[in-house]
Design a protein around this nucleic acid. Structure first.
Lengths: 110, 110
DNA sequence: ACACAACTTGCAAACTTCTTCAACTCGTGT
DNA sequence: ACACGAGTTGAAGAAGTTTGCAAGTTGTGT
């Protein structure tokens, strides 16, 4: 007997409910990245990034392997992309209706 | 200038990151419900339900209108359904791999 | 063997979210 | 006008999350 499904869903969404984790997943869904490459793109302390990566690892959303002195991360659930895209669609809808943040959406690719 | 997109996404997911709110959205995406109907389906104190509904209202995910003495809620962003479905798909994948919670998924409809 | 870069871990302080209680509003029926 | 059912609101304590610091690994080059 496991956790009820609605609770598992809530936990999945909770995992996505953090700006740094969203950025990590967006970067990783383009291609694999080493931690220091993520660090260049995301404004955050190394230890904080590590913590956020740990959260994503715990929920099996990403996996890591060592390559020499680097640790490379990849998305292990490709469907996460769908979730991010659906979110984007909803946000464009909201923005169209409420009229805010318009240019942001039009110009950035993800 | 508005909030960066990745932050808006994080907030959207954060809103979904609560079991009661997931259940509310699942029930409302079947059909509109009055608050006391939701209360019958979800094990939660009335005031707590009200708080969770308020969170969903603030983010424009649901809207409410009075009908006599009842307050009826409906989903105002139909695409939320896609998000819930995508979550379900991901969860089945995870469960298939990690072998847990299997029967739960097979038998319940949402 | 040593220094250095690349990460991770443990932990405490700051902050946010959740839950419940008591008090309140608003409509319906009497 | 009154009582009652249906919901909402405010506030406060408990619980959970986030952040950054200092300390610890592990691999590479010298």
């Amino acid at each position: 007997m496991g956790v009820p499904l609605y609770q598992a869903k809530a936990e999945l969404f909770k995992t996505l409910g953090h700006p740094a984790r969203i950025r990590i997943l967006e970067l990783l869904s383009e291609r694999d990245h080493a931690v220091h490459e993520l660090l260049e793109q995301i404004e955050i302390e190394p230890s904080n990034l590590s913590q956020q990566l740990a959260v994503l690892r715990r929920t099996s959303m990403v996996s890591s392997h060592r390559v020499g002195s680097e640790v490379v991360y990849s998305v292990s659930i490709p469907e996460v992309r769908d979730l991010l895209l659906a979110a984007r669609t909803i946000l464009s809808g909201l923005i169209a209706v409420q009229g805010e943040l318009g240019t942001e959406l039009a110009s950035t690719p993800s």
